[in-house]
Design a binder for these strands. Sequence first.
DNA 1: AATATTTTTTAGATTAACCTAAAAATTTAA
DNA 2: TTAAATTTTTAGGTTAATCTAAAAAATATT
Lengths: 221, 221
Amino acid sequence: MAISFTEENYLKVIHRLSEATSEDISTNAVAELMQTKAASVTDMLRKLAEKGWVNYQKYQGVRLSPAGEKIALSIVRKHRLWEVFLVDKMGFNWDEVHEIAEQLEHIESDDLVNKLDEYLGFPKTDPHGDPIPNKEGVLPELAYSHLSEIKANKTCKLMGVAQDSAVFLQLLTKLHLSLGAKLDIKEINEFDRSIFVSINDAEPIFISHEVAKNILVKILA
Amino acid sequence: MAISFTEENYLKVIHRLSEATSEDISTNAVAELMQTKAASVTDMLRKLAEKGWVNYQKYQGVRLSPAGEKIALSIVRKHRLWEVFLVDKMGFNWDEVHEIAEQLEHIESDDLVNKLDEYLGFPKTDPHGDPIPNKEGVLPELAYSHLSEIKANKTCKLMGVAQDSAVFLQLLTKLHLSLGAKLDIKEINEFDRSIFVSINDAEPIFISHEVAKNILVKILA
DNA sequence: AATATTTTTTAGATTAACCTAAAAATTTAA
DNA sequence: TTAAATTTTTAGGTTAATCTAAAAAATATT
Ligand SMILES: [Mn+2]
Ligand SMILES: [Mn+2]
Ligand SMILES: [Mn+2]
Ligand SMILES: [Mn+2]
């Protein structure tokens, strides 16, 4: 069954929303991420249900069917592999690749995706620390914590980010926060929940709660 | 001004037809290459003229404007660079890359194209011997001859093919005809215009006129 | 429980890209 | 130079994806 770019993007968005909750996804939530109107979403959900890619009852919200899940994961796989390619091979920075990958994720060729995977050395995560589904669509579960939830005096390692936006990633770069960085949490300020933290043993700096919420870490000690 | 995949493909097709002639391109010729109907072409030509990418008067045929030429060349550049990538880096055969490049040529990022060009070592030609326009859209003119026009007892070098179809390229591969091959023309048969030729000093074989017409060569001696 | 608010769906239009069939213009042939 | 054949355009529709405005359903508040 033929699939359009638009349909692929809807499935991807429903998948993304489903990762954060076990509930059905609302029409409005999809509309917001798709940057479109609720009425358009209703039309599309009916069509996706028709094609067997989602389960949808009007007024009840939507969730992916196994077939839809498989498609969504294949798009996520392509998106993240292309991001690795753009950073590792083309020399882009991590804040420059998302938009280009949004286009490349729709290129249709299983052969190409698998050759690309091999060429990149079968990476497990993309430049933002997000896990890459394998050929069978299995997504390794990486259970990281948000930096905003870590207690003072802990040491942790930066494993990923919860946002792809260029402004956010550029800010991290300015703060010398990149994947793998060691973070020593010196103090958490009650007033604004900002964090005083040493990055790779450098002089400690302040990081806002807003930023900390979007940083994923593994606790080392 | 925004451009759609479809508009890009029309400009590319008009460009391709314009390379073979200095006359205006007919609606029917465009329709055939676009695999669509003449009526649809008329609609699109009006629209492309509106956008300033072609010069078109009804019943008079069409040709690219300088702006349209520039767009067409940028798509050709992307198509051919991606083909080099697919063969040189991904390990595809030359008969497997055209369809994938048809998709990749529409990816929009000047930054990516130029980084890809550099990564590939600024190739001058694609895997089929076709010249690659540079960043400024300048297409090096490679004046090759068709093998079908070469006289007997000449020696030449295979520089390119005049067709991208998989069946044709696979046949060449079977005959050990690849880019750079040395061809010693032993005899041309009057009856069917088939050519008796030695490839890289191997035992001579017969090549049909139909095949020879689509092989581009440089005469060595 | 009744009412107000919010969410979602329906109804009716719009736009891009395509189609078929018929009309008009151009080219070829008698 | 007319008539016939071919090419191209116009006219009128279709489909996918979108929109706005209004109606209907679900949820929240008095
Ligand atoms: Mn991304
Ligand atoms: Mn990413
Ligand atoms: Mn090609
Ligand atoms: Mn080529």
